[in-house]
Computed example of a mutant assay.
Amino acid sequence: MGDSSASYIHLVHHLIEECIIFNMSKEECMETLSKHANIKPIITSTVWKELEKENREFFEAYTKSREAGSSEMVTKQRIQKMLFDLTQSGDNSTTTDDDGDESESDD
């Protein structure tokens, strides 16, 4: 049983690494492995915690990177909303017809 347990943990370890490649959080990884690989979240969480202990510096950098990426995403969404709002209300000199073509208005 010991050998099969070790290979199972090795599999979970490998799958966690795949989740990290896709920039998933621990929670996202637990949910994904539960849903797609039928691995209990407690197993994923336990292996993840052990990996964090063994690779503390990597996981600190990984967490910071994810947080920075999240901040960048929020910033990009705000910029996109601002640009959308500006195009909808800021310039009334052009209108868009049903085909999506712009035309100048005669003000």
Rank of each mutant, 00 (worst) to 15 (best):
I42Y: 04
G100Y: 02
K53M: 10
E50C: 02
G90T: 01
S25Y: 07
D3T: 13
N23E: 13
E54V: 07
I21P: 00
E17F: 03
I21E: 15
P41W: 01
S25M: 10
L11D: 08
K40V: 14
W48Y: 15
S65C: 03
K49P: 00
G100A: 04
E18L: 07
I16Y: 02
H36S: 09
L51R: 04
E67G: 02
K81D: 14
S89P: 01
I20K: 01
E102A: 10
V47Q: 12
S71A: 12
I9Q: 04
E104Y: 11
C29L: 08
G2M: 05
I39S: 07
T32Y: 09
S4A: 09
E27P: 04
N38L: 03
T96H: 03
M73N: 05
I20W: 01
N92P: 10
L11N: 05
I39N: 07
N55Q: 13
E52L: 05
S7T: 15
P41R: 09
T32S: 11
D101I: 03
N38T: 08
V74T: 05
E72I: 03
E17T: 05
T94F: 14
A61Q: 10
D101M: 07
K35H: 14
F58N: 14
F84S: 09
N23T: 04
I16K: 00
T46W: 09
G2P: 02
V12K: 06
P41E: 13
T63N: 10
Q80K: 13
K35N: 13
E72A: 11
E28D: 10
